[in-house]
Amino acid sequence: MMLKQMIFAFISSMGFAILYSIPKDSILRSGFVGAMGWMVYYKFSHILNDNIISTFFAAVTVGVLGELFARYYKKPATIFMIPGIIPLVPGAGMYYTMLSLVEKDFNMAANKGTEAFFVAAAISIGLIISTTLSRSIKRVKNKG
C-alpha cells in the first residue's frame, strides 16, 4: 500500500511538473520531491490522524528538499517545490465544504471549511519555515 501510494504520488507530481512546464532535466527530481512530500503526509496522517499537522510536515519536507535541490542544481527553488505542493492543496476540503453547503448541512460545511482553511495555512507555514531556514543558513555561511 505504502509503495503504491508512493508510485502514484511520484507520477502525479511529474504530471503536474509537465503541466507547469518545468525544465526537462528536472522532471524526475521534482517527481521525487513530490513523492517524498506525499509519503510524509500519508505516514503522519496515519499516525496522528490529523490532516492539518500532517500537511504541515509534508510542506516542510517539500520546502526543504526543494531548497536543497535548488542549491545543488543551481535552479530556482520553485521548480522543485510547486509540483510537490499542488497535491497537498486542500481541493478535497474545498469540494466537501461546497457539497455540505449545497446539502444545507451548515455544521458540516463550517467543519470542512475550517479544516480546508487551516490546511492551506499549514502549507504556508511549512513553506515559510523551510525557506527561512535555508536563507538563514545561507547568511551564516556567507559570513563565515
Binding site: M81, I82, I85, I86, V89, G91, I123, L127, I128, T131
Partner: peptide
C-alpha cells in the same frame, strides 16, 4: 479533476514573497 485548477503556484509564490 479540479486538482489541475488549484492555486498551488499562487500559494507558494505568495509565501516566498512575504518572507
Amino acid at each position: 479533476s479540479i486538482m489541475s485548477l488549484v492555486p498551488g503556484v499562487a500559494i507558494t509564490n505568495a509565501m516566498r514573497d512575504t518572507i
